[in-house]
């Protein structure tokens, strides 16, 4: 049976993971490669690395990190942050990434999704959507939530699928950082509308939230950062818990 996926997310800035990392046994907690290796060995099903660097120099550092991650870990990983062209995608895949996540650039120029799918296949293209419940509907935002658009989550996710997205990574900005749980109603609605997998993101504070994302939100995968980085839970105990909840997980 296909397992529900657990995906730790690592934000990388100037070559280091950000968001205070609190692993006692990790020699270099800030090293994204070491942290990825640790999660992989603990039983993460995939990893996501997001480049939140703005500078050109930082970008080159990120490509180097992608290459080192590919050498170090034996599970799939997705990279994202600032991807705007097929050339960017080619560089990242060529250095060992399995998938890329596109966000703002695709909202501004949706044809980017078609181009990525045509060149590299649908399975490579994860479309990340940041949305907030505004005026009675889920509205998509650009640039990490700083700029509102006139697109709704449901409409844009469907268009992304039709253009060739392989998965949708939906982050609820209302839930992100609250640690109060995922946006399960919106997730379940997306699941029912789409033929491609949906990754839940934003709001995870404990293992029960992940179980809810799968059961109530019908998500195919759950992404989280803080609960792993801060050591609130580790992946083996999380997966044991999910199994007691009757959810299929890889143990």
């Amino acid at each position: 049976m296909l397992a529900k996926r657990i995906i730790p997310c690592l934000d990388v800035k100037d070559g280091m993971t950000v968001k205070g990392v609190n692993f006692l046994n990790l020699r270099s907690a800030g090293d994204p490669v070491e942290l990825g290796r640790r999660y992989s060995e603990e039983g993460a099903d995939e990893l996501v690395y997001l480049d939140i660097t703005a500078s050109y120099e930082g970008r080159k550092t990120f490509v180097d990190i992608v290459r080192r991650v590919a050498q170090a870990i034996n599970i799939p990983f997705t990279v994202g942050g600032g991807i705007g062209s097929v050339y960017d995608v080619d560089t990242l895949l060529g250095n060992g990434a399995d998938k890329v996540s596109v966000n703002s650039a695709a909202l501004k120029r949706p044809g980017l999704i078609d181009e990525i799918a045509r060149h590299f296949g649908n399975q490579v293209c994860v479309v990340a959507i940041d949305a907030r419940f505004t005026d009675g509907k889920w509205v998509c935002y650009l640039k990490g939530g700083r700029e509102r658009t006139d697109r709704t989550l449901q409409e844009w996710a469907h268009e992304a699928q039709e253009r060739g997205a392989g998965e949708i990574l939906f982050t609820s900005m209302d839930h992100d950082g609250t640690r109060n749980g995922y946006a399960c109603d919106a997730l379940a609605d997306l699941h029912d509308r789409l033929q491609i997998p949906v990754i839940a993101s934003g709001g995870c504070g404990c293992a029960a939230h992940i179980a809810d994302a799968f059961k109530l939100g019908k998500a195919d995968a759950a992404l989280a950062a803080g609960i792993f980085h801060f050591g609130d839970t580790d992946i083996p105990s999380l997966k044991q818990y999910l199994r007691t909840q009757g959810l299929p997980v890889r143990l």
């Binding site: 996926r5 649908n122 399975q123």
Partner: peptide, 11 residues
């Protein structure tokens, strides 16, 4: 229809 295509993940 709940089993999506492509299959993506661990089986």
């Amino acid at each position: 229809p709940e089993l999506k295509i492509p299959q993506m993940g661990w089986n």
